Simulated assay, not measured.
Amino acid sequence: MNRPGLDLDQQDQKGFSPLLWACANGQTPTVELLLYKGASLNLTADNGESGLLLAACYGHADIVEHLLRAGADVNQSDELYNTALMYSAYNNHSDCVAKLLRWGADLYAENADRLNAYALCTRKGARQAQLAIEEHLLRLLTTQV
């Protein structure tokens, strides 16, 4: 039980809560503890950053998996319509890309610049992320036949 007066969702001047900081910095045990103690899974910072977006952006695949299992929306986006898949693809985090796609991330979603995850990673030269997306598409094609 939480101590009276302790706010696990208290946000700093940029809207970051302890959970958001832990997700961004790869602190898996802290993420687990905060969620167990009741921190809000769906809280976002000032620019719409969620724990899932931050973990995917920085390549923390274990935290991405934990958040998805806890019920995070795989297709949640920030204020510029960037999703966790877009962030992980752009930053060449192929493990995160693969996890997000397995959990049903929308590969065709577009951000404010009308770019999807595949376009973002190919423009950036994020080859490992590109391969992860292509492997996912090949799996979809072979299971459809």
Rank of each mutant, 00 (worst) to 15 (best):
G51M: 10
L35F: 03
V145K: 10
W21D: 09
N2T: 14
A105K: 07
R69P: 00
L80D: 15
L107E: 14
Q76A: 09
L138Q: 15
K14C: 08
S40R: 09
G59L: 00
E110D: 11
E49Y: 10
G48M: 01
Y36D: 13
A126I: 01
A132P: 01
C121D: 01
A55E: 03
A117Y: 06
T142S: 11
F16Q: 15
L33V: 09
M1A: 11
F16L: 15
A117R: 04
Y36A: 14
C121L: 00
D62L: 04
L35Q: 03
G59E: 00
L101S: 03
Y90G: 05
A72H: 01
L8P: 06
L100A: 03
L107G: 12
E49K: 08
H66E: 11
S88R: 03
S88A: 12
K99G: 00
N91E: 14
D78E: 06
G5F: 12
L34T: 05
A129M: 14
A109Y: 07
D113V: 14
V74K: 14
L20D: 05
V31M: 08
V64K: 10
R123S: 15
T30Q: 08
A98P: 03
V31Q: 05
Q27Y: 13
L131T: 05
A45M: 08
E110M: 13
A129Y: 10
A126E: 00
D95W: 02
E79S: 06
V97W: 03
L52G: 01
S50C: 07
N92T: 00
N47Y: 09
G125T: 12
S94V: 11
G125Q: 13
L137P: 03
D46L: 10
Q27I: 11
A45R: 09
A84E: 09
F16I: 15
S40H: 05
Y108S: 14
H136T: 09
Q10T: 13
